Computed example of a mutant assay.
Amino acid sequence: MSTWILIFGLGLCTFLPRYLPLVLWGQRELPPLARTVLGAVPPAVLAALVVPAMLVPTGTTLDTSLENPYLLGSLAVFMLFFLTRRMLLSSFIGVLVFFAAQWFFGGV
């Protein structure tokens, strides 16, 4: 029984923060500052997820060497996307660079 209460409670904790702002402010126009701040949230969350995985692949020490396949693959994606603006191509080449570097340097 307590498992179902926990599942229901966690579902409520997930649902309410998403639903209440729509109900309370759904018809109102957001102020420009709020729109600017909310527009920066997705890139900030993505950076918070990607950068630690890229720079600390083992989970213990910072690795900024050029033998880090995660760093090399990420740099390839960033540079290719900056030059071509083609996300799928950049991601594909980045994965290839990652696996090639992992094979060449013997894995992490």
Rank of each mutant, 00 (worst) to 15 (best):
G107Y: 14
L10N: 05
A44M: 05
T36H: 05
P21Q: 08
G59F: 10
P31K: 08
L30R: 13
T14M: 11
R86I: 00
L88Y: 05
Y70E: 12
S2D: 08
V95D: 06
F98K: 08
S90I: 02
T64L: 15
A48T: 08
L75S: 12
F15A: 03
L49C: 02
S90W: 01
S2F: 07
V95A: 15
A48N: 02
L80P: 11
P57V: 09
T3N: 13
L49G: 01
Y70Q: 15
L55T: 12
G73Q: 04
F98N: 05
S91A: 08
G39P: 04
L30D: 14
P42D: 02
F98A: 05
F104V: 09
A100N: 01
R35Q: 14
W25S: 13
L66F: 15
V37N: 00
T36E: 10
L22M: 07
L33I: 10
D63S: 15
I7F: 13
L75W: 09
I7T: 09
A101Q: 04
I5T: 07
V23T: 04
T14K: 02
A40H: 03
F98G: 07
L62K: 10
M1K: 11
A44C: 03
T58Y: 12
A53S: 09
M1H: 09
F78Q: 00
P21I: 14
F81L: 02
Q27L: 11
L12H: 02
I93A: 06
L80M: 06
T64M: 14
L72G: 07
P31V: 06
V45T: 05
V95Y: 08
T58V: 09
F105K: 14
G11D: 02
A47S: 00
L16C: 09
V45K: 01
R85W: 03
R85Q: 04
W25P: 15
T36V: 09
T3F: 12
G39W: 03
L46P: 00
A44S: 06
Q27H: 09
G73H: 03
S74C: 11
R28V: 12
L80E: 01
G11L: 05
L75A: 14
W103V: 15
Y70G: 12
L38H: 11
V41I: 15
L49Y: 00
R28A: 15
L46Q: 00
M1L: 07
T3E: 12
L75M: 14
V97N: 01
L71H: 09
V95P: 10
T36W: 05
